[in-house]
Design a protein around this nucleic acid. Sequence first.
RNA 1: GGUUCGUUGGCCGAGUGGCUAGGCACCGGUCUGCAAAACCGUUAACGGCGGUUCGAAUCCGCCACGAACCUCCA
Length: 488
Amino acid sequence: MEHKLYIYNTLTRKKEQFIPLHENKVGMYVCGPTVYGDGHLGHARPAITFDILFRYLQHLGYKVRYVRNITDVGHLENDADSGEDKIAKKARLDQLEPMEVVQYYVNRYHKAMEALNVLPPSIEPHASGHIMEQIEFTQKIIDAGFAYVSEGSVYFDVEKYNKSNNYGIISGRNIDEMLETTRELDGQSEKRRSVDFALWKKASPEHIMRWNAPWSVGFPGWHMECSAMGTKYLGEEFDIHGGGMDLMFPHHECEIAQNKAGLGKDSVKYWMHNNMITIGGQKMGKSLGNFITLDEFFTGNHKLLSKAFSPMTIRFFILQAHYRSTVDFSSEALEASEKGLERLMDGYARLQKLSPSATSSIETAGLRAKCEEALNDDLNTPIAISYLFEALKVINSVHDGKATISVSDLEELQSVFKLMVEDLLGLKVEATATGTNEAYKQAIDMLLNMRLEAKRNKDWATSDKIRNELTALGFEIKDTKDGFEWKL
RNA sequence: GGUUCGUUGGCCGAGUGGCUAGGCACCGGUCUGCAAAACCGUUAACGGCGGUUCGAAUCCGCCACGAACCUCCA
């Protein structure tokens, strides 16, 4: 396959050329949401980042299997011994079945993703639907001698693993230092070492999400689901594993250790991590409580938002920064993106209506190559977008009659824009819902005020014409004592 | 404290050892009866101090500031 896609591999801290394990096929796993709350802006970032990768790999001709999980066996809220499962807690507070909570937020997550024009993954496995696989995986690790059972729970023996492997390979953490710094916190824990992590936890009596396992009635450790589901659907070795940078440690570090211990091999070739979205320079996150949900953006219903922002504005905003940089949210920054996007989409619409001439007075060749070059360079969407803006000037000058474009150049330009804007960046023309509704309402009001004025002038012909034609369109017009009312 | 990363013009945000990224705002212009919108054009930056180099915002060192991870987090 002829391409030079380079992606930054967190494992090596370098950009590496992407070469799939199996010719023409790509296996990609991305950590999805824990569904016990509404998705916020931070959740949009990995979804959109890896959506671009998904789209681009397919554009390059690969058959891609994209797996994005749903974590519906909540993680422990506090420390491992006294904690409560997040989803179980939410369920208890709302007096629902845990799976009702899960279903509710999964539905809402899907709705938000669809609005953001994020393509659905090939497989979206639920952790709760793969308990057997997780038990089996845990057993493999026990059999390999890298885990021990303690009071019904199973723990990964990090220290033993680290003797023959490198625990800390992706996060740069040093296990000796970790042992030193955390030793004092070791109490009467059932763990041998504080760095050990759970593969299976025995459920406390109040823990309502529980399953039978050889060791106890309990639930799988957090990191287990990705090991189990990733290898189930993509094989013991696959190409790409993605997720947010905050998952690097401990989640991905543990996942690497689990796979190596249980399977005897490294499963993932390229690890990719998107950076965080910040707000006031600080990470937007659930625990800090400084997040703004996607719905709040779409409706503008949040005190930090000057107005509503459409899903495409959110998408464009995220794409205007490179995925490995932090991006600082502010209402001003979003407004800037909104205007930029509008100009881009207006230009795209204008491009469809340009009239070609016999010759071109402008240069259009090279845009495709430049855009692909940008995406090949670790998905540099901001650079690709900057090229589109440059091309916009060409489009506008042709539109203004200040330049000419030949049929073939026009077709090429249209084709590149279609590819970049719609297929790869995934930007779609949207009838900015709220704005349109407001304008539409005001237009109707204006018409009816004109009718009111005509009535005052006893211009019945005009008055009736307005009423009849609106009625014909399906509006109900009601005269009131001091004005009018209408509805569709 | 440990590990990692960052500090770019009014704001957001790319980037390379020498050649103006881009967006938004500002300013100027075209258009318009006027205005708005739209379009065109211009301006402006590389945290501080040293070093390497013919040349560094880009490489190295130190300092300052900020952030992420070390508990759950996308």
